[in-house]
């Protein structure tokens, strides 16, 4: 037989178990409302208050279990995978190497060789893959709010805006892509989204570029594009690892259980 006030004790335990979560008060208020509605429904069916509380808690799950699922979900951030996001992740993973190979081929083939045409085609495909990856990223994280929207459209117009600047367009493009990744990084941070590797690479790109630029400038050395190359490598790496993570999000985990919020439920 349940003791009166059992729900209060349960909420105290839940509050303790989820004390590290930022929206703790909201969680407890929501759980309390649910439990009290269940108790009211049980009493309406003829149960005593004590029986009604006991059944409500039994149906709800232990505070330890509910807290564990909350914490697991918190780690997972706001990522919601769909077929589109998995395909977009694969495209995002392919975009950097395609752009790199395409650029090298276009340059090596000069303007009149077939190699140049292949290079241009690869660069064009890479641009499409890049934009598709961005669309997938928006879908996966619900757009990442205002930062995501700005980053998305900046990413879409980055190449057309950089084109009129000829060779200086490489720098313009690097700045634009840098802004895109910083904005995405901020959006991901705000949405508490894993995985960590691309987030760290995104966050490290601009500081690393600035640091190398400053060091080379202070030493009076010819930069030879080293600073831009470093930023490009980090950005490419970030985009590729993010794409890899997106493309590998399966419907089921390795143990065959759902990858949804109940994956932690034994």
């Amino acid at each position: 037989m349940a003791e009166p006030g059992l729900i209060a004790a349960y909420l105290t335990e839940l509050r303790y178990s989820t004390s590290k979560l930022p929206d703790l008060d909201d969680i407890v208020a929501e759980v309390e409302d649910h439990l009290l509605m269940t108790v009211a429904a049980n009493i309406a069916r003829g149960q005593t208050p004590a029986e009604a509380e006991a059944e409500a808690l039994a149906r709800f799950g232990s505070a330890e279990l509910v807290a564990r699922v909350f914490i697991e979900q918190e780690k997972r951030g706001g990522a919601v995978s769909t077929t589109l996001t998995r395909r977009a992740g694969f495209a995002a993973m392919l975009a950097p190497p395609m752009m790199l190979v395409g650029g090298i081929a276009a340059n090596a083939g000069k303007s009149e060789q077939p190699l140049s045409g292949i290079g241009v085609a690869l660069c064009t495909a890479a641009t499409v893959a890049f934009v598709y990856g961005l669309i997938g990223l928006r879908v996966r994280h619900g757009g990442l709010g205002m930062f995501g929207r700005v980053a998305f459209w900046l990413g879409v117009v980055a190449i057309p805006v950089a084109l009129p600047f000829a060779y200086a367009g490489i720098v313009v493009l690097a700045v634009e892509v840098g802004l895109v990744v910083v904005l995405i990084g901020v959006g991901m941070h705000r949405a508490r989204i894993l995985p960590r590797v691309p987030v760290a690479l995104f966050a490290f790109t601009l500081p690393a570029w600035a640091l190398v630029w400053l060091v080379l400038e202070a030493a009076g050395l010819d930069k030879k594009g080293i600073d831009v190359a470093l930023a490009a490598v980090l950005t490419f790496g970030a985009f590729m690892t993010l794409g890899l993570a997106m493309s590998r999000e399966p419907a089921l985990d390795a143990r065959g259980r759902g990858a949804g919020p109940l994956a932690t439920v034994e």
């Binding site: 969680i27 649910h34 269940t38 799950g61 509910v66 919601v80 709010g145």
Partner: peptide
């Protein structure tokens, strides 16, 4: 367990 739907709802909200 009914309590396990709330973490899912919160995540879906974070995802927009």
């Amino acid at each position: 367990p009914e309590g396990t739907i709330y973490p899912a709802l919160h995540r879906l909200e974070r995802a927009g």
